[in-house]
Design a protein around this nucleic acid. Structure first.
Ligand SMILES: [Mn+2]
Ligand SMILES: [Mn+2]
Ligand SMILES: [Zn+2]
Ligand SMILES: [Zn+2]
Lengths: 149, 149
DNA sequence: CTCCTAATTAAGAATCATTCTGATTTAGGG
DNA sequence: CCCTAAATCAGAATGATTCTTAATTAGGAG
């Protein structure tokens, strides 16, 4: 599942600016890793990104992919998604959004909803801490999995 | 953070019934692993449970803890929580509830809210699949972490 | 443009979480 | 009290991620 080209380019420009701003070097590896993730709506893991990037940079190492993804996460350019048992998955969509997760095959898809994103839950959490963000995870069975069973 | 004794015993009774029902053996190991998790509000990982259970069953193996937790999850008696990069965490609270997660130290706490639990998101997800459940994750900074910084 | 150097990378070793294997033990039915 | 399938234990294996070290390179200075 691909992201539209102009959105990818917007993300890449943001990435380049952030790399400059942070005083980091703009390497082929960083550019290709980020572009690969920014082009995908699939929330891939490090190994999936590695496989794709290797088509364009055949000598790239898996370690560099991991290191780059961590760097990008530290810069706030991408997010890391927790999964129970599976490998970490990454997300270059930095807009406020939510996730549909297929409990059968692990597919993850974004959705946006103003009403949900506007939810206020602060009052319920007095005693735990300060709220930074609220995200909704919808679990279900994706259409592909449903058709197969 | 402990769960009240009568709630723990209620959970243990449910566990015993489910183990019988499934035709599984009620071993010391299974009982102690379940009781340890059912007594905690901390959403511990397998190693944390192992360390605690070892006080009462000094010869228990880490493998048995992992195997037991997977069995309990298959029975629907506990849930596994995805975390980005850290080890899997477990939850014996099977009521519909949501989570506050400290982005600094990883603390996870339950909260319930009827309004949030009643959320209907189906209409937004036409095209992805069939919705089974909706859970909210609130990220923030817990009070302990806030006081330290 | 060339040179320099600190930052970055590649490769493989190391580490950590989790699962598997095979021999031993045990729950619970008869 | 036996028997046996199920469960456990210990340690090896696997898979994901990080670390170490030597080689490479981006980008600034001259
Ligand atoms: Mn996303
Ligand atoms: Mn919980
Ligand atoms: Zn699916
Ligand atoms: Zn905290």
């Amino acid at each position: 599942m691909k992201i539209e080209a102009h959105e990818v380019e917007r993300r890449v420009e943001t990435f380049k600016a952030a790399v400059q701003e942070a005083g980091l070097k703009l390497t082929h590896q960083r550019l290709e890793v980020f572009r690969e993730l920014a082009s995908s709506a699939d929330h891939p893991d490090a190994h999936g990104i590695y496989d794709s990037v290797k088509h364009r940079l055949p000598t790239v190492s898996l370690d560099t992919v991991y290191r780059t993804l961590r760097t990008l996460s530290d810069l706030g350019l991408i997010n890391m998604l927790g999964t129970a048992g599976e490998s970490i998955r990454f997300d270059a969509n930095t807009r406020k959004h939510h996730h549909f997760v297929c409990v059968n095959c692990g597919l993850v898809r974004d959705f946006e909803n103003e009403e949900l994103s506007a939810l206020q839950v602060q009052e319920d959490l007095v005693g735990f801490g300060r709220v930074l963000e609220t995200q909704i995870e919808v679990r279900g069975i994706c259409n592909d999995c449903r058709n197969k069973s």
